[in-house]
Design a protein around this nucleic acid. Structure first.
Length: 624
RNA sequence: GGCUUCGUAGCUUAACUGGAUAGAGCACCUGACUACGAAUCAGGAGGUUGCAGGUUCGAAUCCUGCCGAGGUCACCA
C-alpha cells in the first residue's frame, strides 16, 4: 500500500489523485482534455452527506453535458478506481465523495505515529523576515505588538511550511528623535539612570523624549506671541487659514528654522554624524538602556531574532548602487545634482534617491540594506512586516530592486498590516492614549490570574507553577486576540475584550487542550488498537477531517503570510472537540475499540491544537 | 484633487480566493453540572454583505458609477 501520508501531505496526495482520475475519465468518456486546475476539492460542507466535495460546474460548460450526468460518470469512475472512496452522491454541480471508514482509521493511525504532524517537507528556500523595527527613543506600544506577533508567527509558520527562516529587525538607533531624548536627559535628567530609579530603560528614555516634546511645545507657544511669529503668519498664511491652523501646520518648519531646542537637537545630530566622542558615548549609553528594556519585553512576548541590523551602521548604504544604476541610465540626474528614478511607466511618480548634496534618503538605505542582506544570507525571499501606511514606499522599493535586476526581486513581499485603533479612536501619543506594551502584558496576565483564582482549580500547584499557567493563559488571550484578525484589516483593539477568556479566544482553545490532557491522564496508557471500530459518528468524522486538512492550512497560511488562518483553524478544531467531548463518552465508551479510538482521536486533536497554537507563539498549559 | 486600501448582525469578525441555505464570538433571552474539567454545551432572536447597475450556471468576492471611512502623495524616517 502506498504511503499516502509519507510526506505529511496526505490530503494533497488524495486530492491530486482525485483530480488526475477526473482528468482521465473525462478524456475517456468525452474525448476532452481538461486542465486539473479547473477542479477544486474541499471538505464537504456540513448538511450534505460526504467527506470531500468536487465542484464540477466548470466542466459543464466545457463538455456541454448536464451536471448530473457528468457527476455520475465521475463518481462511478472514482469509486471503481480509488479504494479509499466508498460511495458518492451528486447535488447540482457538486460531487460529494464518502471515504471508507478504513481510510479514516488508517489515517488516524499514521498521524499518531508522526512526530511533527503539520510540519511540511523542506523546500530548500530561504526567507528572511523583518519585523518589530522600533525606534530607540520610546518604549514599545500596541502597534509594535501587532507587528511583532505577526512577524514572529509568520516566521514559525513559514518554517513549518518548509522554509529556512532568518528573523531580523532593523533598529532605528539614529536620527533626530533619539537626539531629542538625549538632549532632554542632559538638560533635565539630573544624571538619573535605570539603575538609580529602578525604571525600565526604554521607559526612562521615552520619558525624556516626552519631556523634550513638552518643552518644545511650550517654547513654540511662547514664540507664537512674538512679532517675528506675527510677521511669518502674515506673509505665509494661506487664505481662510486661521492662526491656530497655520501654526499647527508650521510646527515642523519652526523646529528647523527658529527653535532654540530644535537647533540644539540638530547640533547634537551633527556632532553624532561627525563622530564626536562625548555624543557617541551618551548615545550608546542611552541606547543600551533601551535595548535592555526591549529585551525584557521581547522575552515576555517569546520572540527573538537571528540578526540585528542597526540603522547607525546601514544608513549610508545604497549610494554606490544608486550611482551604478545612474551609470546604466536606470536613474537620472537633475541640474542640482540630485538623483531620481522615474516610475511613471508604473503609474507612479518620480522619486528621489540621492539628495543634491549627494547624501542618502530613506529609500536609498533600504536599497542598500536589501543588497547587504542578500550578501549576508543569500535569501530567496524577503518579507517586510511594516504597517500599511508605508504601502507606497514598498511598492517603489520593490520596483527599484526589480529594475536593478536583483536575484531575490520576485520574492519580495510587504506584509502590510492595518493600524490598531482603540474603541475611542486612533492611538495618539499627544493625547496619551497610546497603549504601552508592558502595561498591556501585565494587564492580561493579572486578568488571567484573577479568573483562575476565582475558579480555584490550581490550588494544589506551587506558586511558580501557577504563575506559569497564568502567564500562558494571559499571553494566549492577548496573542490570539490580535492574530485572529486578518493582517490587512485595520483592527479595533478593545482592552476589555482582549482579556476575555470566553468564546472565540486563546483560553477557549487552551481549555480544549487541557480537557484532553485531563482525559488522557485519567485513561492511563492509550492503545492504538482501534481498527475494529468500524463506525463512528459525525462529530468524530468532523474532527478527523479537520486534522486531515491541517497541513493544507499550514501551507495556505504560509502562502498568504497570514497567521489568522491558523488561529481560526485552531478555534474551529477546539470548538468541534468541545462538542465531541460533551456529546460522546470517551472513558466509558461502549467497547474497547471505541474507547481506544476516541482516546487516540483526542490525543491527536491535542497534538494538532498544540502545534497550531505554537505557530502563533502561544504555549499550552497542562492545567488551567 | 491623483493613487490606494477598506465598508458583512448593535459590537468584534469568518467565508477554503467565483461555489451549496453568508459562518462564529461578545452582548441579550432560554435550557444543561450526583457522567471523562461549566474558561463548556444546546437552543432563540439578530443580515437586502454601504447604494445602484453589469458580467454568468452561480457574486460578499470580478467590472463600472456613486456614498462613506482610512492611508499616501517631503532633498523626514
Amino acid at each position: 500500500m502506498s504511503t499516502f501520508f509519507g510526506d505529511n501531505r496526505g490530503h494533497m496526495q488524495l486530492f491530486d489523485k482525485i483530480k488526475t482520475e477526473i482528468v482521465n475519465v473525462t478524456h475517456r468518456s468525452y474525448g476532452t482534455s481538461i486542465d486539473p486546475g479547473l477542479l477544486t476539492v474541499s471538505p464537504t460542507r456540513k448538511d450534505f452527506e460526504g467527506d470531500m466535495t468536487v465542484v464540477i460546474f466548470p466542466l459543464v460548460k466545457l463538455l456541454r453535458k448536464k451536471p448530473q450526468d457528468i457527476g455520475a460518470i465521475i463518481g462511478d469512475h472514482l469509486v471503481s478506481k480509488m479504494p479509499e472512496i466508498d460511495h458518492f452522491n451528486v447535488v447540482q454541480g457538486f460531487v460529494n465523495l464518502s471515504l471508507t471508514s478504513d481510510y479514516w482509521l488508517s489515517f488516524l493511525e499514521k498521524s499518531l505515529a508522526h512526530d511533527e504532524y503539520g510540519k511540511l517537507a523542506r523546500n530548500g528556500e530561504k526567507v528572511m523576515i523583518e519585523y518589530s523595527s522600533p525606534n530607540t527613543n520610546k518604549p514599545l506600544h500596541l502597534g509594535h505588538i501587532r507587528n511583532i506577533l505577526l512577524g514572529s508567527s509568520c516566521a514559525n509558520i513559514m518554517h513549518a511550511a518548509g522554509f529556512e527562516v532568518v528573523k531580523v529587525q532593523v533598529i532605528n538607533d539614529r536620527g533626530i528623535a533619539i537626539c531629542k531624548s538625549m538632549l532632554a536627559w542632559l538638560k533635565y535628567g539630573g544624571g538619573e539612570t535605570p539603575a538609580s530609579t529602578g525604571e525600565k530603560g526604554d521607559h526612562l528614555v521615552g520619558k525624556y523624549y516626552v519631556r523634550f516634546e513638552k518643552e518644545f511645545r511650550d517654547e513654540y507657544q511662547e514664540w507664537q506671541q512674538s512679532p517675528k511669529a506675527q510677521e511669518v503668519f502674515e506673509s505665509r498664511k494661506k487664505e481662510d487659514q486661521s492662526r491656530d491652523q497655520f501654526f499647527a501646520a508650521y510646527k515642523n518648519e519652526y523646529f528647523n528654522r527658529y527653535s532654540e531646542l530644535g537647533n540644539e537637537a540638530r547640533e547634537m545630530l551633527q556632532k553624532w554624524e561627525d563622530g564626536d566622542a562625548d555624543t557617541i558615548e551618551l548615545w550608546s549609553q542611552m541606547n543600551g538602556w533601551v535595548y535592555a528594556g526591549f529585551d525584557q519585553t521581547y522575552e515576555r512576548l517569546g520572540v527573538d531574532f537571528d540578526h540585528l541590523y542597526y540603522e547607525s551602521e546601514t544608513w549610508k548604504l545604497g549610494k554606490s548602487e544608486v550611482l551604478q544604476g545612474l551609470d546604466k541610465n536606470l536613474f537620472f540626474q537633475k541640474d542640482d545634482g540630485s538623483v531620481w528614478v522615474d516610475l511613471s511607466h508604473e503609474d507612479k511618480d518620480e522619486k528621489i534617491l540621492l539628495r543634491s548634496d549627494g547624501t542618502s534618503v530613506y529609500i536609498t538605505q533600504d536599497i542598500g540594506t536589501a543588497m547587504q542582506r542578500y550578501r549576508d544570507y543569500g535569501i530567496d525571499r524577503m518579507v517586510y512586516v511594516v504597517a500599511d501606511e508605508q504601502n507606497y514606499h514598498f511598492q517603489v522599493l520593490f520596483e527599484i530592486l526589480n529594475m536593478l535586476d536583483e536575484p531575490y526581486a520576485e520574492g519580495l513581499f510587504h506584509l502590510s498590516y492595518g493600524m490598531v485603533d482603540l474603541p475611542s479612536g486612533k492611538m495618539k501619543s499627544r493625547e496619551g492614549t497610546v497603549v504601552d506594551a508592558d502595561d498591556l502584558i501585565d494587564d492580561v496576565i493579572s486578568e488571567a490570574r484573577q479568573v483562575a483564582m476565582e475558579k480555584g482549580d490550581l490550588e494544589d500547584l506551587d506558586e511558580s507553577a501557577r504563575d506559569e499557567v497564568f502567564f500562558r493563559i494571559g499571553m494566549g488571550a492577548l496573542k490570539f486576540f490580535i492574530l485572529k484578525v486578518n493582517p490587512g484589516k485595520r483592527m479595533t483593539f478593545d482592552p476589555e475584550a482582549s482579556v476575555d477568556m470566553q468564546g472565540q479566544t486563546g483560553p477557549y482553545v487552551q481549555n480544549a487542550y487541557v480537557r484532553i490532557q485531563s482525559v488522557l491522564r485519567k485513561a492511563g496508557s492509550i492503545s492504538a488498537d482501534f481498527r475494529s471500530c468500524q463506525s463512528f459518528g459525525d462529530t468524530e468524522k468532523h474532527l478527523l477531517t479537520q486534522i486531515f486538512m491541517y497541513p493544507e492550512i499550514v501551507k495556505r497560511s504560509a502562502n498568504e503570510y497570514d497567521p489568522s488562518v491558523i488561529a481560526n483553524f485552531c478555534y474551529d478544531l477546539a470548538k468541534s472537540y468541545h462538542r465531541f467531548y460533551h456529546d460522546v463518552p470517551i472513558l466509558t465508551a461502549e467497547s474497547d475499540a471505541a474507547r481506544n479510538f476516541r482516546l487516540s482521536l483526542s490525543s491527536m486533536v491535542g497534538t494538532v491544537l498544540e502545534n497550531g497554537m505554537n505557530l502563533l507563539g502561544i504555549e499550552m498549559p497542562q492545567r488551567m
